[in-house]
Design a protein around this nucleic acid. Structure first.
Lengths: 224, 224
DNA sequence: CGGTTATTTGATGGGGGTCAATGGTCGTGG
DNA sequence: CCACGACCATTGACCCCCATCAAATAACCG
């Protein structure tokens, strides 16, 4: 999947223009949205809810001075836009070609509860990662998380190796993991040199040793 | 993927004894629980839910090597123990003399949704704090949060100053804010010297300039 | 009052941030 | 088809914030 750059979305600064019209398109017939499509913005009036069918959506909050924290990366099957009150508590944008399915405002209490519970668990896991894990541990954890969401069960490789498309850029990963682009890149290099992962392309990665990677993620192994 | 901790998780300092009998007491007639009472432990079978009436409860997760992350500090009026699945996803302990009220397993969908939404919002705010804020910003944010939960509306002081009991120790605060005890202490000292806060006692604090403090918390002001 | 634990303060070092330059990839236009 | 330009990723040099290590109070308790 190429990164077709339809929108010249300069993501550098925090201008984040208001292309809110995206909803209309997806509502029509589950169209494919291009990368860097803003679904809704933090602070704006409450937007509809979606289920991700293909692709990836990032939810984030931004400080007044532009510092950004990605709250979650959402892959196929999961919901985006659940919230309370009349304002969005975070922004959401697509990270790749993404297909969304609108979800009824009122889903069954059970589904809603389950979905909220999952979001809560993931948010708490992120807090643990941000508060107490080192940079290599964070990057390893991120790769395992993404493998779970985007990894194909296809195992043409040996020993449970998993290959998948890395939707987030290095900058996205940095904003997710509380690091900088440079640190993320350096961690990748170290993991690669340690033989735990490999890149076919900067956005296509293979986990060669998921078990070792999991031990790095848990802090059981210092990584060389 | 929860690490179902086996049993005697030695976390250096506090041995975290297995006084799970606490539930029984509170169930009887909302008794006052002493500080450092464990309500339930991460990984153990699902425990009942409570509403905090007085005092403070900390929820936390612990890595296998002992690193601890406090997920939330819960004050009067809020719920503890909501979760899904058959295992607790975090531990909970009292931080001071605390009175709990057992809450029915099945609260109204509305209440449950509201409570989960609040937990989610707080967890996301914590992620932003941990991922993108500096140490002084974190400490200032924490003080404002605790003032909101524990501050009396009593304003015997001038200009909206708020005094309240600091239930968490420096270590608790460090584990909440992703810092060390020393850094928390140093930030307190700096805030005190800047005239933004004052201590009557190490666990009794007054916010002298809540507005300035809020600007520090938001990163609008570098703190001298 | 002595022993224990929490907090504060100081000295030092390292992990990761910042700044800067190079290299790689892709899309566009000649 | 290749050159150019824009953008992303990688790598290196340097530095700073905060962790670490250590010690001195300060509060607590029997």
């Amino acid at each position: 999947m190429l990164t077709m750059l339809a929108e010249g979305e300069a993501r550098k600064g925090p201008p984040l223009p208001a292309m809110m019209g995206a909803e209309r398109k997806s509502r029509a017939e589950n169209a494919l949205l291009p990368p860097r499509t803003t679904l809704f913005l933090e602070g704006f009036s409450r937007s509809p809810q979606y289920r991700v069918l293909e692709g990836c959506v990032a939810t984030s909050q931004t400080l007044t001075d532009g510092r950004r924290q990605i709250i979650d990366l959402v892959g196929p099957g999961r919901l985006v836009g659940l919230g309370f009150g009349d304002r969005n508590r975070y922004s959401a944008e697509t990270l790749g070609l993404t297909r969304l399915e609108p979800v009824a405002e009122t889903l069954s209490p059970g589904d809603l509860e389950a979905s909220l519970g999952e979001m809560l668990a993931r948010s708490q896991a992120l807090a643990m990662l941000l508060g107490r894990k080192t940079a290599p541990e964070r990057v390893a954890s991120a790769l395992l998380d993404l493998a779970g969401q985007f990894g194909r069960p296809a195992r043409q490789q040996k020993r449970g190796a998993v290959t998948f498309h890395l939707f987030p850029t290095r900058t996205d990963l940095a904003d997710w993991l509380g690091l900088t682009v440079e640190t993320v890149s350096r961690c990748f290099t170290r993991l690669k040199k340690a033989g735990l992962i490999d890149f076919q392309h900067s956005d296509r990665v293979t986990l060669l040793e998921p078990l070792h990677l999991a031990r790095v993620a848990a802090g059981d192994r210092p990584l060389s």
